[in-house]
């Protein structure tokens, strides 16, 4: 176990943990998005999806456990790396101009914190129902349509989708680099891969609150 601790103590080690947990979280995000999109098919299809989700409690709790571990490690490593990075330049530049670093790459910690905060709100809203005024435990379709009926809430969901997209725009490109996966054969596709999937995730998640909002306004 000694070598794992030593590996994690290094900055590339922490980055490796960020990358692997990031891939796990991204896989879940994709699954979750495909599930959400069922709402466009109608109430019955969405309920069918939810029944499927609860059909195997063992699997459901395994996924939840893996997610919780991945999210926790992702956050801890991110905080440790950010503290380290901030400490590496005690005297800041008076003038700073970036040549390559884009908005997404420079705001990873902020978009990350925003996504984590939204995740907590989202769980309280749609899973536990404690901040949902008309929550009915067994009726997901009702919870979504009534919950997103309120424009500020709906817009918050749209904004969260966009922020997640921004986070993935850098993360999905960066992950190859951190895991050491770089080759002239596919390097030119990495940017396209990250752009397409961050757009898919933003539009996929954003389409639900927008659809509820536009139909009910």
């Amino acid at each position: 176990m000694h070598w794992i601790a030593e590996f994690y103590r290094s900055t590339p080690g922490k980055k490796f943990v960020m990358a692997v947990t990031g891939v796990v979280l991204f896989a879940y995000v994709l699954l979750h998005m495909v599930g959400n999109l069922q709402i466009h098919l109608g109430p019955e299809e969405l309920r069918g999806y939810v029944r499927l989700r609860y059909a195997a409690p063992g699997l459901l709790w395994t996924v939840r456990f893996v997610l919780l571990v991945a999210a926790t490690l992702h956050v801890i490593a991110a905080v440790q790396l950010t503290v380290r990075n901030r400490g590496s330049r005690p005297v800041r530049y008076a003038v700073r101009r970036y040549r390559e670093a884009d908005y997404a790459s420079r705001t990873m910690i902020f978009t990350g914190v925003a996504i984590a905060a939204f995740g907590v709100y989202h769980l309280l809203h749609m899973t536990f129902g404690s901040v949902h005024p008309e929550f009915i435990r067994s009726d997901v379709y009702h919870n979504v349509t009534s919950g997103l009926h309120v424009p500020p809430v709906s817009l918050l969901y749209v904004a969260a989708s966009a922020v997640l997209g921004l986070h993935l725009y850098h993360g999905l490109w960066s992950v190859f680099q951190t895991l050491g996966l770089s080759s002239p054969i596919y390097d030119s596709w990495r940017r396209a891969f990250a752009t397409v999937f961050s757009l898919v995730v933003t539009l996929g998640f954003g389409s639900v609150p927008l659809a509820v909002l536009l139909r009910t306004l």
Binding site: P12, G87, R99, E100, S105, T178, L179, G180
Partner: peptide, 30 residues
């Protein structure tokens, strides 16, 4: 600090050394 793949280094390197070497070093370290 740690590398966040901002690519600023590559942009200012007088010898234009590619960040592909960073991926390679990560692989070696791993």
């Amino acid at each position: 600090g740690g590398c966040s793949n901002h690519r600023e280094c590559e942009a200012v390197c007088p010898k234009r050394i590619s960040i592909r070497f960073i991926a390679r070093a990560n692989r070696d370290f791993l």
